[in-house]
Deep mutational scan, measured.
Amino acid sequence: MGFKLLSKLLVYLTASIMAIASPLAFSVDSSGEYPTVSEIPVGEVRLYQIADGVWSHIATQSFDGAVYPSNGLIVRDGDELLLIDTAWGAKNTAALLAEIEKQIGLPVTRAVSTHFHDDRVGGVDVLRAAGVATYASPSTRRLAEVEGNEIPTHSLEGLSSSGDAVRFGPVELFYPGAAHSTDNLIVYVPSASVLYGGCAIYELSRTSAGNVADADLAEWPTSIERIQQHYPEAQFVIPGHGLPGGLDLLKHTTNVVKAHTNRSVVE
């Protein structure tokens, strides 16, 4: 069995187990497998329904001669939608809004960016022009300005110390501490036991640490421990890039980060 097929099978099995364990909360999309990078042309966006009122959005972007996937989250909030992270750029984010209108038909009224990198804030200006209120932590807003990236308009308070959590509509926002970046936030959907790890969490097929220019490698494993301790009931975990899975993604990420750190020390 090929690795790609095995990865998709694991996603399907995880979703099936969740649907059985929580039949009222989960209505997993039966329309197909989780979209992969090879299936999404740059400039297009796919939506994948995880649970009743919960979707991931998947886009792709060219970077350094390669094409990478990027995940975000959409959560229903009454007759409105909360968006977590842009679709990595203005063109993708405009396509995301169009796809949401086509498939869901509810307005996106608020959006949260989970850290300051372009795959999370690139497209904020498109959201703002569409009347979406954009939010991020003060740290993310400051770092985005320093980096020359787009800056969300509103500040999220109460997320300055490791372990801080605040309720934001249908989700809980959690600051686990520094990891992929010093400002990275985690998003949890309690009604569906869905954990969105953003770039602080890796997919299972990833074996290298990737972009760690703004990471705190020493603190990252401790931050992941905080996530595990705060959300032990999480059933569906979405990484910032690639295929979702279960809580095993947290341990896998820790292993990859520690291996990278150990290699760096040896070198």
Results as ranks from 00 to 15, higher is better:
residue 263 R to F: 10
residue 126 V to W: 05
residue 23 P to E: 08
residue 229 Q to R: 08
residue 253 T to K: 01
residue 4 K to T: 04
residue 121 V to A: 10
residue 36 T to E: 10
residue 163 G to A: 05
residue 45 V to L: 11
residue 174 F to D: 00
residue 209 A to C: 13
residue 36 T to P: 03
residue 222 T to I: 13
residue 114 T to S: 14
residue 55 W to H: 14
residue 25 A to N: 02
residue 7 S to H: 05
residue 197 G to P: 10
residue 244 P to W: 06
residue 111 A to T: 10
residue 86 T to H: 02
residue 103 Q to Y: 03
residue 132 V to K: 07
residue 87 A to S: 04
residue 159 L to C: 10
residue 10 L to Q: 13
residue 166 V to T: 04
residue 109 T to H: 15
residue 262 N to W: 06
residue 6 L to M: 04
residue 173 L to I: 03
residue 115 H to W: 00
residue 199 C to T: 01
residue 202 Y to L: 09
residue 205 S to W: 07
residue 82 L to P: 02
residue 164 D to L: 06
residue 62 S to I: 15
residue 247 L to K: 02
residue 143 L to D: 05
residue 216 D to Y: 09
residue 83 L to Q: 07
residue 169 G to M: 03
residue 102 K to Y: 10
residue 72 G to K: 00
residue 121 V to F: 01
residue 53 G to K: 03
residue 251 K to M: 05
residue 114 T to H: 00
residue 77 D to Y: 07
residue 16 S to G: 07
residue 13 L to H: 15
residue 113 S to V: 07
residue 240 G to R: 01
residue 164 D to T: 10
residue 88 W to V: 12
residue 204 L to V: 12
residue 31 S to I: 02
residue 162 S to L: 05
residue 104 I to D: 00
residue 47 L to S: 12
residue 87 A to L: 02
residue 222 T to H: 08
residue 46 R to M: 08
residue 224 I to N: 13
residue 150 E to R: 10
residue 185 L to W: 00
residue 113 S to M: 13
residue 149 N to T: 05
residue 39 E to P: 15
residue 50 I to T: 10
residue 93 T to P: 01
residue 151 I to Y: 02
residue 85 D to W: 00
residue 87 A to N: 02
residue 139 S to I: 13
residue 232 P to M: 10
residue 161 S to P: 08
residue 37 V to H: 03
residue 258 K to G: 08
residue 18 M to A: 03
residue 164 D to Q: 09
residue 258 K to L: 14
residue 226 R to G: 10
residue 5 L to Q: 11
residue 175 Y to S: 12
residue 156 L to C: 14
residue 154 H to M: 10
residue 243 L to N: 15
residue 213 A to W: 08
residue 65 G to N: 14
residue 9 L to Y: 09
residue 243 L to H: 15
residue 123 G to L: 01
residue 123 G to S: 02
residue 42 V to T: 09
residue 233 E to F: 12
residue 260 H to Y: 04
residue 153 T to D: 06
residue 205 S to G: 08
residue 214 D to V: 06
residue 101 E to V: 04
residue 175 Y to I: 03
residue 227 I to R: 01
residue 243 L to F: 12
residue 186 I to P: 00
residue 241 H to C: 01
residue 252 H to E: 12
residue 110 R to G: 09
residue 2 G to M: 15
residue 191 S to D: 07
residue 227 I to E: 01
residue 47 L to G: 01
residue 189 V to N: 05
residue 180 H to A: 00
residue 228 Q to S: 14
residue 99 E to P: 02
residue 32 G to D: 12
residue 122 G to H: 12
residue 17 I to M: 15
residue 42 V to F: 15
residue 61 Q to D: 04
residue 230 H to Q: 07
residue 9 L to C: 09
residue 6 L to T: 11
residue 180 H to E: 00
residue 141 R to Y: 15
residue 98 A to Y: 15
residue 257 V to R: 11
residue 98 A to V: 04
residue 1 M to R: 11
